[in-house]
Each structure stands twice: as structure tokens, then as C-alpha cells.
């Protein structure tokens, strides 16, 4: 295991780090430019860049060690990625009770169904070197769809509290009162993926296709396979967006059909409540 890790630390690493430094320098220049227009993202960008680099190096090391692992090991890695994705997506709705499990179920369902389907149809092999990168793309897109659905649904509910409660006072089922906002939330999460599919090959040639061609695969097959991947990303995103929205809809109402997701009455996480209850220096 250690030998495999050491083997991966060759001269390419130095070149990769130099390239990373160049990319970071360019990002820093953009951040400085944004700062001149009063868009201050310095701290957030620094954290994101540092996290991204460390995480990718770590993943590379894990893959180097587990390159020849079995399907179970690959599944465990994807499960850990799904959990991390759920944590990230749920941050968009940290004031909603149970947002982490909601996000996890949605992303796991979306990515899980699609990856299982691809494995069953042999569109994806159980080789970790293939399974984890492709699986991570699907999980990441499911995460984005999940976060977009959460954000849109939450924003719509809060913006249209009056209409929703007017519907409730007329005896409507809660699901009926929020039906337009469910539709717009799912649609909002799918739109970027639909655009991605539309622009495939015209605007961008994704990395999988480029990698396959570099490694000698037929460009036509590489193109078709890339389409399969993007179509699966759309499917996973749709499932994740739909499930998280439906789960949030259920969480937005009490058993007595009262809208509980209202401005100023959102759930506050335990740590936030603790911080609020602590005495403050005057």
C-alpha cells in the first residue's frame, strides 16, 4: 500500500504543483479585480482554493492506494462522498430542521440509482479508477441540483407565504398550495443540466471524452460515452432535486397542515441556539 503511494509521487507532482500555483495566481488576480468593484470574496476564495487543492491531493493519494480495490471499497468511497455532498448542500438550508438527512437521502437516491444502473448495464466498471471519478461527477451534480432545489423552494415559500396560507384557509391540501413552487424548484435544479446537455460538443468537450481520446479510445465512442455520462448526470440531478423538494415540502407543514417554514420562524441549529444564548460582552 505504502509502495503504491510512493510510486505515485513522481516528478509529475512537482509539475502539477507548479501548474496549481499558476491557477491560484490567476484566481487571486480575479479576486483582486472583484475587490476593486466592491465584490469582496477574498476570504471565501482563499478557503475554497485551499480546500480544493488539499482535498484533490488527498483524493489522489486515496486513489493511489486503492487503485486496485474492489467494488465494496469503491462503494464506501462514494458513500463518504455522498455524505460530504449532503453536508455541503444542507448548508443552503441550515435553518431548516433535518436538512442534512433530507439532502443525504436525495443525493444518495439520485446518484445511487444512476450509478447502480450504469454498473448493471456495464456503462461503468467496478474498477475504482473509473467508478470513483465518474461516480463523483454524478454525486457532485446531484449535490448541486439538491442545493439549487432547496434554495429555490425555500425562497419561494418565504416569498409567497400569503398565497400559501390563503390556500390553506380555503381548505386546500398543503401539497396543492405549494405545487407551483415544487415545480419551479425542480425545474431550477434541472435547468443547468439541461443546458449542459444541449451545449455538449458545441460549447464544451468534457474531460472524460478528452481523457479517453488521450488514452487511445475511438473519438466517436468517446463522444457517445460522454453523452451517456452527461445524460446520467441529468437523471441523477432530476431524481435528487425532485426528492429533496418533496421531502422539504413534507417538512414545511405540520401534521395539522400549518405552514411551519415561515419568515423568522425557521429552525435554528443547536450550535446557533447555543451561541445566541451565551452572554455577550457589552
Amino acid at each position: 500500500m505504502i509502495a503504491e503511494l510512493l510510486n505515485s509521487l513522481n516528478g509529475d507532482i512537482v509539475m502539477g504543483l507548479a501548474q496549481a500555483a499558476g491557477a491560484i495566481a490567476l484566481c487571486a488576480a480575479v479576486v483582486l479585480l472583484c475587490g476593486r468593484f466592491a465584490v469582496h470574496v477574498e476570504r471565501e476564495t482563499a478557503i475554497s482554493v485551499a480546500r480544493g487543492l488539499v482535498q484533490m491531493v488527498f483524493v489522489g493519494m486515496v486513489l493511489a492506494v486503492l487503485l486496485h480495490g474492489n467494488l465494496l471499497e469503491g462503494a464506501l468511497i462514494l458513500l463518504a462522498m455522498t455524505f460530504a455532498a449532503a453536508v455541503t448542500a444542507s448548508r443552503r438550508a441550515r435553518d431548516i430542521k433535518g436538512s442534512l438527512p433530507l439532502s443525504f437521502y436525495a443525493i444518495a437516491a439520485g446518484a445511487g440509482i444512476v450509478i447502480a444502473g450504469m454498473l448493471a448495464t456495464r456503462a461503468l466498471t467496478s474498477d475504482i479508477a473509473v467508478l470513483v471519478p465518474v461516480g463523483s461527477m454524478i454525486i457532485a451534480n446531484a449535490m448541486n441540483a439538491c442545493a439549487q432545489s432547496i434554495e429555490r423552494f425555500r425562497a419561494d415559500i418565504i416569498a409567497y407565504v400569503g398565497q400559501i396560507e390563503a390556500g390553506l384557509t380555503l381548505g386546500a391540501d398543503p401539497a396543492v398550495t405549494v405545487a407551483p413552487y415544487v415545480q419551479s424548484a425542480v425545474y431550477a435544479s434541472l435547468l443547468p443540466r439541461l443546458d449542459m446537455l444541449k451545449s455538449l460538443g458545441l460549447v464544451w468537450i468534457p474531460g472524460v471524452m478528452a481523457g479517453m481520446m488521450v488514452s487511445g479510445a475511438s473519438p466517436v465512442y468517446a463522444g457517445i460515452y460522454q453523452f451517456v455520462i452527461v445524460a446520467m448526470i441529468l437523471a441523477a440531478s432530476g431524481i435528487a432535486g425532485l426528492i429533496v423538494t418533496l421531502l422539504m415540502r413534507a417538512h414545511a407543514f405540520s401534521a395539522a397542515a400549518q405552514l411551519t417554514l415561515r419568515p423568522g420562524e425557521q429552525h435554528q441549529p443547536p450550535l446557533y441556539r447555543l451561541a445566541q444564548s451565551m452572554p455577550r460582552a457589552s
Binding site: G162, E165, A166, G167, L168, T169, G171, A256, A257
Partner: peptide, 30 residues
């Protein structure tokens, strides 16, 4: 059942909060 209760005890809010569409569709909603 909350839905039955709300049909029996109607409520008019401070703002009209009409649903997008025609007046007839709003009247027929309940």
C-alpha cells in the same frame, strides 16, 4: 380535520393574496 375546519371557518386576510389567473378561477378554488 384541519381542511374541514378551515372550510367551515373562513378567513380573509389583510392583503387579498389572490392566485394568478382569472377572478372566476379564484372564486372556484375553495
Amino acid at each position: 380535520a384541519p381542511r374541514e375546519l378551515r372550510r367551515r371557518v373562513g378567513m380573509v386576510m389583510q392583503a387579498a393574496y389572490l392566485f394568478p389567473g382569472t377572478v372566476a378561477a379564484n372564486v372556484a378554488f375553495g
